[in-house]
Design a binder for these strands. Structure first.
Lengths: 137, 137
DNA sequence: CTTGACCCTGTACCTTGGTACAGGGTCTAT
DNA sequence: ATAGACCCTGTACCAAGGTACAGGGTCAAG
């Protein structure tokens, strides 16, 4: 298998070469071996790893969290359960956000309707949207 | 009602005084009146506004977006139609955010279900799923 | 009336997740 | 052998959203 240059890797994954080097600096990918010229030589594995990073990002994981996922994976003392728990934490974050946004959506919808109907408007009705937790769905 | 100092306000909301001043600079809260000494004098209203800002942040709104949300209200210079239009813009933002989060939720839920939790990380379906791109989804 | 906690302005710095040079060296096609 | 595309390191920069001084003034308790 041919070694890939950083440009090829970046192109395949759809990121800039700077981003690949940035991930290396951040420890998300390990420094690859170098050719005579000092050029980085990557294998296909790295492409997979980079895709993993991109995909995890879209699920709301920060680079730090992604780094942890990748570390866990290569740590023989951890189990699948560790990964699962992290996914669960992330899921509950996401569910919380959805709830809050639904409240916001309701208030905005109401605002639009009231406005159309010439209804009374409080000084700053939007503030009610996120009023104290649990104090009304 | 006693005027609140910036420290009292910050304490009540659970942010630093620097943050309150930062929001003032960013236009999220308006410059309050000042006492003889030049100290800022706040009313309870400001506490509510700051709490809104904090909650909206956890929902993924940027400070800029939060400023726009807070602007959706009646004042002498805005018409009902104005409010309606701005509320509609924000409503569609909110719906978009919900959609994105639901996609994340779905993927995470599926991954968590597929993972029995008892295997080694080397065979974790969550990690495997993150490896492949898209997987026809 | 002093001490310490608080406030003021202004500026510098931090983190996250990159992006953009500058000033080189290398590789490849012609 | 030379142009142009690529690679290298290093540093600076960007936006967002703060956080931390420095160097002052003020307020309230003992």
């Amino acid at each position: 298998m041919q070694a890939l240059t950083i440009g090829k890797v970046a192109e395949r994954v759809g990121v800039g070469v700077e981003t690949v080097r940035f991930y290396e600096r951040k420890g998300l990918i390990k420094p690859p071996r170098r050719g005579e010229s000092g050029y980085r030589q990557y294998s296909e594995d790295l492409v997979a790893r980079l895709r993993f990073i991109q995909r995890a990002k879209t699920l709301g994981f920060s680079l730090k969290e992604i780094g942890e996922l990748l570390d866990i994976r290569h740590d023989p003392t951890t189990t699948c359960r560790d990964i699962q728990r992290r996914a669960e934490v992330k899921l509950s974050d996401v569910e919380e956000k959805i709830k809050g946004l639904r409240r916001m959506s309701k208030v905005l919808t109401k605002l639009i309707a009231e406005c159309a109907g010439d209804g009374p408007t409080s000084a700053c009705p939007i503030l009610e949207a996120l009023d104290v937790e649990g104090e009304k769905g």
